[in-house]
Write a protein that binds this DNA or RNA. Structure first.
Lengths: 207, 207, 207, 207
DNA sequence: TATGAATGAGACTTCATTCAT
DNA sequence: GATGAATGAAGTCTCATTCAT
């Protein structure tokens, strides 16, 4: 029986070429409208070939989705509020997180559609989205809990709710930056406003 | 002669029966996966019958979408921050809005998918979603501008960004209550936390 | 058992109203594209009503077709070449036929589509068209045979072929007058040219 | 790499197999009644296969129509009346045309329905038919004009009308040979009679 | 391994006809 | 008699996936 004619590395390289092409196609057309034929055409490869590297269309999508999701999760889990010795440090840590998270967003901006839009194209995609939301929630809760333990966060705040809300603000800021048309899609301004509201609230101080 | 055999009321009743069935099907399967056949089967009528009442599948969807959207917009536009004479009144007005908005959400909880998820199933749906987002944004900006004029909202806040963020918090709170699995889907708690963060921020007062 | 509530006359009047409406619709859209609903709408009558007077769509069409066909056949059979005492009379008889035949065409010009275009929309229509062609052929053969017997028509001419050809020229002249766009749709000019070619041929006399 | 697996020739062969099957189906049922399913069944392939080779049903039809039309037009334009030096040559040229034109008809006899009958099945078919009729008309006018210039054709003849009539005779002669039932469907006899009538007229010479 | 030809389930939509009122 | 609501067969077309080469 013949040895595999291509090495593991070559196989992996091909998989990644397919993923790269698929990412563009999904970004452009969305999951449903994107066809295996489009991906194959972009690579100048027969569409049957795709099926030698991936189960099916969903498999490709989920691979892309998982990779993006993991990168974002890694960032969310990589904050270090425990090193903060004062509120200013704590806020700085939050800003650092925003900067890193936003950096990935801006890099992947044209592909974020697979993260926001196609969530419900398939039950399995939805399931993974829901799972990852829980993970993000946990990461943010951890950030807030440490802040509370250190006395930076008001103790009466309901942490799970606050975490959820903070995440919503973050994700929406990102989402806004994806929408070219929006009048308020300045990511920096949004991020600053999120932090401002989160830290100081929107209301004026009573005199 | 050539008088309608069924009254306007009967016709309207049938339309609404179709809309009700369609709403369930769309909620269960999503726009793409839902078939006219599913709707017809649920009503135990021939599929041709559906086409006597609606142009096509999209027509049904948009009718449902528009109705929901209008109801939500009416609520968003129905706030009265201009009557507030003190910050407490202003906050109360916000709470009233939350209560009304949330009421619709809880009633329509199983059908909100058509509002959030199916945005990209069709260009026309997307267009209407985008338009309505702008309207929600405007309504919230108005709320904040009046608050700023009255001295309740910090003047240095960037209103469009703040409005967007506030909307994101509101919508996410609603969205959370749709997800049965979520640990933090207590709508009341979320709403209170949103208002708390929005008014006072999350950070502890310095001693 | 109740006597019929409408008289035979009333029933016949309704049938004819339906036929009149159908004729317009068929002329406008053609057999396939025309819908029973169109006919009913034109009469401001329920479409079910149509079925109380005619079997189905084809039945209506065939009734119209037969009526038109019979009128044209009656004219074709109504020529009197036997009274001609000289070639000039014979030609005059042919001209009289053309005038009468053409008169019906011009009157029915907007409905001739059912005669020319819809011949093959259904096997039964085709069958009747073929049958009527045979009848037209016979009528023309009779005209030519009498002309031959009287010495007006060249004896060596193959009468069935000549009859067929003469019919083709006649029908095409009519057809041409139906086509508005055609540059050579002057019915009079065409009719005159048909007679000229038929009587004298197209070639120049040798000097 | 990405080299076609089947050669251009194989692809073309398949296209032609589909065209051949479609031609039979269209001849048998007509454009409307013919289904893609019928064509696929005749070839014993899935219906999807058809769509790999043609856009849609109309595309198949138009391909057949255009091919036939072009062949006939080429013949009509290929006459050489300008080489005739006497009337006999001119008539011979007309006979040659008839022989060639009739040959195609006899070969395609069972498929001519797509040329005559289906003209009104679709606006695009009609458009092409009308265009080609103008071309046939032009070709015949040219034949007659050259004949007139050379003194073979009577100068007082209205050429566009005569061309139209001549075409009608030709086409009807062909059409006749398609109809099995007709008593006068002997193409040779018809063609001879057309030429005889066209050249000498049908009437007897006065003594 | 790579290919792309073939497949056919599945979705939408139309409209002639039936029939209960 | 009249109506028009309901029906569902029929037809077109798409595209993910299989598989012989």
């Amino acid at each position: 029986m013949a040895r595999p004619e291509v090495s593991k590395e070559q196989r992996q390289a091909k998989r990644e070429a397919i993923l790269a092409a698929a990412r563009d196609i999904f970004a452009e057309k969305g999951f449903h409208a994107a066809g295996i034929a489009d991906i194959a055409a972009k690579l100048d490869v027969g569409h049957g070939t795709i099926y030698r590297y991936f189960e099916n269309k969903l498999d490709i999508f989920l691979t892309l989705y998982d990779a993006l999701n993991e990168e974002l999760l890694r960032i969310a889990r990589g904050t270090h509020p425990e090193t903060a010795t004062c509120v200013e440090d704590y806020i700085t840590e939050m800003q650092k997180f925003y900067a890193e998270f936003g950096g990935v967003f801006l890099r992947e901006i044209s592909h974020m559609r697979i993260f926001f839009d196609e969530v419900h194209a398939d039950p399995e995609i939805r399931r993974r989205f829901d799972v990852s939301q829980v993970e993000f929630q946990k990461a943010t809760e951890r950030f807030l809990l440490i802040g509370r333990d250190k006395g930076f966060v008001r103790p009466e705040l309901h942490i799970p709710s606050a975490a959820r809300i903070l995440n919503a603000m973050i994700l929406d800021a990102m989402r806004a930056s994806v929408q070219k048309e929006s009048a308020s899609n300045n990511l920096l301004l949004l991020a600053m406003t999120v932090i401002e509201i989160f830290t100081k609230g929107a209301l004026a101080k009573k005199a």
